[in-house]
């Protein structure tokens, strides 16, 4: 359900309407950033951030640290697996 694609905010195209251009590996589109702008925050602060895009809206900010953490965890799991495999041989 609900295609959601990570993209990086490149520029703000309309500050008042909270519109910005995001890019995913050579594909750009204008999307609405309202859902990831907290009230007083100016959308320009989002430039460089990664967001999750669904139907032309950024629906969430992607948390880089959490992404790293998940990957580290996955790698550790993998190493652990390799060790137990080694131990069994």
């Amino acid at each position: 359900m609900c295609l959601g694609i990570p993209a990086q905010v490149k520029t703000i195209s309309n500050e008042a309407a909270k519109l910005g251009i995001v890019e995913i590996a050579g594909v750009r589109r204008e999307i609405n950033l309202a859902c990831v702008c907290k009230d007083a925050q100016s959308p320009t602060e989002l430039v460089g951030c990664w967001v999750l895009v669904h139907v032309g809206f950024a629906m969430a900010l992607i948390d880089e640290a959490e992404a790293e953490l998940t990957l580290t965890l996955l790698n550790e799991l993998g190493e652990l697996q390799a060790e137990t495999q080694g131990a069994r041989l």
Binding site: L3, I5, I24, A25, G26, V27, R29, V53
Partner: peptide, 13 residues
């Protein structure tokens, strides 16, 4: 497949 072709496909399904 070029990355931009892949990302277009991800975006539009």
């Amino acid at each position: 497949v070029r990355p931009a072709v892949r990302s277009t496909c991800e975006l539009l399904g």
